[in-house]
Design a binder for these strands. Structure first.
Length: 522
DNA sequence: GTACTTATGCTGTACTAGAT
DNA sequence: ATCTAGTACAGCATAAGTAC
């Protein structure tokens, strides 16, 4: 045995480690629980030390590795760890770990441990901090340095600072520590800033600049047409060839516009917004940092790049109040509602009447203000969820048809929904020359018939698409259509009630089943 | 010398504010 | 709404320091 652990209770809270004849003796006083916890930590530490020769056995959170080979071999062993941006939860765990360590060691200022202590003094500090995080120690170490460096996060550089930075760089070269010290900023901050200070144009790109960029990319990628390059481009070299722009500018311009343009990309549409939300919803990830934008980007002609796609998501989610406080699934739902509300408002501004301002979580109301000319085929339909009940009213006057629905998602909300529905009906009954068709009682025969080409809209959580709610009629019903459905001179095709595909995208539509809506017969 | 720890430098990316 | 820019942060490689 290399090390022997001896736990000796003492009358104060001091913690001491003593080396005796190759044995390491830990002396401190703690509760039984704390002692057990400490032993566990030490055992982990010892285990780690013993097994470092065969590093692939080591727990990721206790391994300090940086080399490519080490990572590859660990991946080969099926070990996995988190990469990329740290989540809020991870940062919180890290902070808690630091606080715990400081508390245990009677330290008031964590920066003292990180920046002042000798490594013997802060023994096991990084290992303790890494607990509960699926990150290598190296990653934890770097994160802590940045997090607790008071000279970091100091905001925008003033013009004076930039001038001074330029002078100091001339004086000290790339000694960023020295420059940072004099500037009162962190070394990485001054280094990053200098990198972006290369002389370059700003603002809109000129056609000749764009041409040079395309040429540079094609030259460096060894390609002239086809698939846009996204990865593996050395932007510093590209910038050298473009001459008038920095590497960062080149990268952004290429990834967000030119690569898409040069591969025959299509314009982004509202359908693409909905498709994106649909995809995100089905990914079932808890955090948008975990979204693989590259995978989503594949084979999507309207998407300009993974980065651009991600930016698209950001522009959508920013429309939701307090978006940063929401869990992803909830946020996606809210983005959908926002989008649909924006569409409603947009329709309203075109001169149609907005019949309902109600956009709460519990009452989801649709108003189709003018009955559009329906296309001969409606190619998408969504069967309402079994638990969903639907009330609807159809309001007709001389020129407009207002088609309202209240979809009740949750039984608990039923009373409220009903009240909302009643209120809506009262409101509508005040309007002259309107005919109100009361809710259907045959719920199994209700479908959402969707086709975004209609330009229709609901805020229902049940469909990703613009949709109109109609009564579906069994094919067997033939022409015996309920009179309540006959409300216009348009022709619409309904989904059959039998042989339905299990979910959305109801493509099986009986081509012969066409219902003539005739307002005269109401 | 070797294995491990700590630190630095360069490149690329993420997030988001500001400009258009 | 979209484009551009500013800042922070991560990945990767490797140098320097240290204990054995």
């Amino acid at each position: 045995m290399d090390n022997i652990e001896v736990i000796v209770p003492k009358s104060n809270d001091d913690v001491e480690y003593i080396e005796r004849g190759g044995n390491r003796i830990c002396i401190h006083v703690q509760s039984v629980e704390e002692i057990e916890q400490e032993c566990e930590v030490e055992m982990d530490s010892n285990h780690q030390k013993k097994t470092q020769a065969s590093s692939t056995d080591v727990d990721i959170t206790q391994a300090w590795f940086t080399s490519k080979d080490d990572k590859e071999s660990r991946k080969g062993q099926g070990q996995n760890w988190k990469t990329g941006q740290w989540t809020k939860d991870e940062v919180n765990i890290l902070k808690e770990n630091v606080e715990k360590y400081c508390e245990k060691n009677s330290i008031t200022d964590p920066t003292r441990v990180i920046f002042d202590m000798q490594k013997e003094e802060r023994k096991d500090f990084y290992r303790q901090c890494a607990k509960g995080l699926e990150r290598p120690l190296f990653s934890v170490y770097r994160r802590l340095l940045r997090m607790y460096d008071k000279k970091n996060h100091m905001g925008k550089y003033s013009k004076e600072e930039v001038d001074r930075l330029r002078k100091l760089t001339t004086k000290y070269g790339k000694d960023w520590s020295k420059i940072g010290q004099e500037m009162g900023r962190s070394a990485s901050s001054v280094k990053d800033k200098m990198r972006l200070l290369r002389e370059s144009n700003t603002g809109k790109w000129m056609p000749d600049e764009e041409a040079r960029l395309v040429e540079a990319i094609q030259e460096l990628q060894g390609q002239t047409t086809g698939v846009p390059a996204v990865h593996g481009i050395e932007w510093a070299k590209v910038a050298d060839k473009v001459e008038s722009r920095s590497e960062k500018q080149c990268r952004t311009k290429w990834l967000n516009y030119l690569s898409w343009k040069h591969s025959g990309g299509k314009e982004w549409s509202r359908d693409d917004d909905l498709k994106l939300l649909d995809i995100l919803q089905h990914l079932k990830v808890d955090n948008d940092n975990d979204v693989n934008w590259t995978a989503i980007f594949q084979d999507w002609p309207s998407a300009r790049s993974p980065q651009w796609l991600r930016a698209k998501w950001w522009s959508l989610k920013r429309h939701v109040n307090a978006y940063s406080d929401m869990k992803l699934p909830q946020l996606i739902e809210n983005v959908k509602k926002q989008l649909q509300t924006r569409l409603t408002n947009s329709q309203s501004s075109l001169g149609n009447r907005l019949s309902s301002e109600n956009d709460s979580d519990t009452s989801q109301t649709v108003s189709i203000l003018t009955l559009p000319t329906l296309p001969p085929l409606i190619d998408n339909a969504v069967l309402l969820d079994q638990t969903t009940s639907l009330n609807q009213s159809i309001i007709l006057d001389q020129s407009n048809i207002v088609f309202d629905q209240n979809v009740i998602i949750d039984d608990d909300e039923e009373e409220k929904e009903k009240a909302d529905c009643d209120k809506e009906q009262e409101k509508h009954e005040e309007i002259e020359n309107e005919i109100v068709v009361t809710p259907s009682t045959v719920q199994q025969q209700q479908f959402l018939i969707a086709n975004s080409a209609l330009g229709l809209l609901t805020t229902s959580a049940n469909s990703l698409r613009d949709h109109i709610v109609v009564h579906a009629v069994p094919v067997s019903a033939g022409n015996n259509i309920p009179q309540s459905l006959v409300f216009a001179n348009d022709t619409v095709q309904l989904a059959p009630s039998v042989g339905l595909p299990d979910q959305e995208g109801l493509s099986v539509i009986d081509p012969d089943f066409v219902v003539g809506f005739n307002s005269d017969s109401i």
